[in-house]
């Protein structure tokens, strides 16, 4: 099916799919590291469930890369594949729970925004996988937002740390988004919105978190 696409569109789609697969896999690994280290037993169980979901989503999307093998780096394919295109901020283990919550909010948030733009995608292999993922991501979003508000209410060094980490991750994630050819994908109907729409929806989704961290105005200026 991908052979029917124009070369520029194929390149853009291959790059996006690799970014989604890699980010979900890396995020799943990072979440999993907190299955035994979260602040409460409830949060540890949620971290475990979110890790399982992210790894499952990545695995479910992995076969989509097969149609683009000629365009992707060799190390991104096969049984021993390596993560090469994940969103920044996941290269190292989270230094603390605030890092977990920042990634939960920012990186999970950008992935969900991208999938929401693919719910009526003209590229059916992508479109058919979005509904279940978006449904599960609803709980990830509630987790990130719930913890952000909890940390913000507590004040002190935790919220300062969260503010710093959210600001850093937001900048890095917006830069990562810019690296994809979103407008080409939107023009072909693979996504239902272009770069500006994606960015706007993403920042809108983050508003409760950004407000809680005192970053709302600053984010809009980015």
């Amino acid at each position: 099916m991908s052979d029917e696409l124009a070369p520029e569109l194929r390149r853009a789609l291959a790059d996006l799919l690799l970014g989604l697969v890699d980010t979900k896999q890396q995020l799943g690994y990072r979440y999993a590291e907190w299955c035994t280290g979260a602040p409460t037993l409830e949060a540890a169980t949620a971290a475990s469930a979110m890790a399982q979901a992210e790894l499952g989503h990545s695995r479910a999307m992995l076969p989509l890369l097969d149609a683009f093998g000629d365009l992707l780096p060799a190390e991104a394919l096969g049984d021993q594949r390596q993560i090469t295109r994940a969103a920044p901020g996941l290269e190292l283990s989270f230094a603390g729970w605030t890092d977990f919550i920042a990634a939960n909010t920012i990186i999970d948030g950008v992935l969900t925004t991208l999938f929401e733009l693919a719910t009526s995608s003209t590229y059916k292999p992508l479109q058919s996988r979005t509904r279940k993922m978006i449904e599960e991501e609803r709980y990830h979003s509630a987790h990130g937002q719930g913890w952000t508000l909890k940390l913000a209410r507590g004040g002190g060094s935790a919220v300062e740390l969260l503010r710093t980490r959210v600001a850093e991750l937001l900048d890095a994630t917006l830069g990562w988004l810019e690296s994809f050819d979103i407008d080409t994908l939107a023009q072909a109907g693979v996504l239902s919105g272009g770069r500006d729409e994606l960015r706007s929806r993403f920042l809108q989704r983050l508003q409760p978190t950004l407000k809680a961290c005192g970053l709302a105005d600053e984010a809009l200026a980015r």
């Binding site: 409830e42 469930a49 709980y139 987790h143 937002q145 719930g146 508000l149």
Partner: peptide
């Protein structure tokens, strides 16, 4: 039962624990 700071987070916890 779960312990949580908000109903929203309680829902997230309940869904992942009692699955």
């Amino acid at each position: 039962y779960v312990s949580a700071p908000s109903p929203e987070l309680a829902g997230v916890y309940a869904r992942s624990i009692y699955d």
